[in-house]
């Protein structure tokens, strides 16, 4: 781990040029992901009744999971975060965390306003 870290530190200030082969692989994966999410939307994936009045539909869950995977590929490879400095990596993760915290806390509020009166 520490050896790898040192290597990363050493390479941090060398400009990493990502090969077109990587870009081509990623764009193909993104197009496959798009086809997959459209295909999945035509199938009824059912639902999960967690509690009375509280239901989780699987279609949106699958669609968002595919979208998150596509986003990760774009961020890591097209946006070079995989090859970026630790500062950039930390910035991206902090941004994602803040976004999820803000959305998550807003949703807990809306979700619990009418608790038990569904």
């Amino acid at each position: 781990m520490s050896e790898l870290d040192q290597q990363v530190d050493h390479n941090e200030h060398e400009h990493h040029i990502v090969s077109p082969v990587v870009y081509l692989t990623i764009v193909l994966a993104l197009l496959v992901g798009t086809g997959l999410t459209v295909w999945a939307s035509y199938i009824d994936l059912g639902e999960w009744h967690i509690a009375p009045g509280l239901t989780l539909f699987w279609n949106p869950v699958v669609a968002l999971a595919i979208a998150c995977t596509k986003m990760t590929l774009v961020v890591l490879f097209f946006m070079h975060v995989k090859y970026s400095t630790r500062l950039t990596k930390l910035t991206v993760v902090c941004g994602l965390f803040t976004f999820l915290a803000l959305v998550g806390m807003t949703m807990t509020d809306y979700f619990s306003r009418a608790w038990g009166r569904w």
Binding site: S41, Y42, N59
Partner: peptide, 16 residues
């Protein structure tokens, strides 16, 4: 990336 999320949310998830 914004569009990658807009597409399923607006177009796809309400088919079922």
């Amino acid at each position: 990336i914004i569009w990658i999320f807009l597409f399923p949310l607006l177009y796809l998830i309400s088919r079922h």
